[in-house]
Amino acid sequence: NLLPWFPSVDFSLPTLLNLIGQILLGLTIGEYWGISPKLRKGAIVHALIPVLLTFLTGVMAAGLAMLLTSWDWLTCLLVTAPGGSPEMIWIALGLDRDVEIVTAGHLVRLIAINISLPILVSLAGSLDHHRTNPQDSRRSCNQPP
């Protein structure tokens, strides 16, 4: 809308494309169940635990964002949702929410992850080295300066 020479963009997909997507998703799930038809209760419980923990974390982060900002609940939930950025932005567009805020929130999240990733990898490597070679860390601490 900011560019008057650019035509208006409609973000709704055609019904046929939605139908094809649903069919392909159903085929993918059906093919997996065809390969491994035995689904045990333990597997379902083990699969639900991380899903519920992720959902709980998203709700808690949205509550914290709501306390710290003046945004409404749905905007806070879309900003702090652990899902993919494009999906949350599409949902914000579809629900007519603050798309700019949702986009900015996910950009900040992705930048923070990319900045902290080398530090976390280095820390994990250091901890793994100390775990596998405990004699090296003791020897270096007991040596005189």
Rank of each mutant, 00 (worst) to 15 (best):
N1T: 13
N1P: 10
L2V: 07
S12C: 04
S12L: 10
S12D: 10
S12T: 04
S12I: 02
P14M: 11
T15W: 06
T15C: 08
L16S: 12
L17H: 13
L17I: 15
L17T: 15
L19A: 13
G21H: 01
Q22S: 09
L24E: 09
L25E: 14
G26P: 01
T28R: 14
I29E: 04
G34L: 14
G34F: 12
I35T: 15
S36C: 10
P37S: 14
K38W: 08
K38Y: 05
R40V: 08
R40W: 09
R40L: 11
R40D: 08
R40A: 11
H46E: 12
H46W: 11
A47T: 07
L48G: 06
L48R: 06
L52S: 12
L52Q: 07
L52Y: 03
T54I: 08
M60R: 06
A61E: 10
A65I: 00
A65V: 03
M66V: 04
L68Y: 08
S70E: 12
L74I: 09
C76H: 00
L77M: 13
L78M: 04
T80Y: 01
P82G: 04
P82T: 01
G84T: 03
S85E: 13
P86C: 01
P86N: 06
M88H: 05
M88A: 15
W90R: 13
A92V: 01
A92P: 01
L93G: 07
L93P: 03
G94H: 10
G94R: 11
L95P: 02
L95D: 03
D96T: 08
D96Y: 10
D96W: 02
V99S: 10
V99L: 02
E100F: 04
V102W: 01
H106V: 02
L107T: 04
V108M: 12
I111R: 11
I113C: 10
N114D: 11
I115W: 04
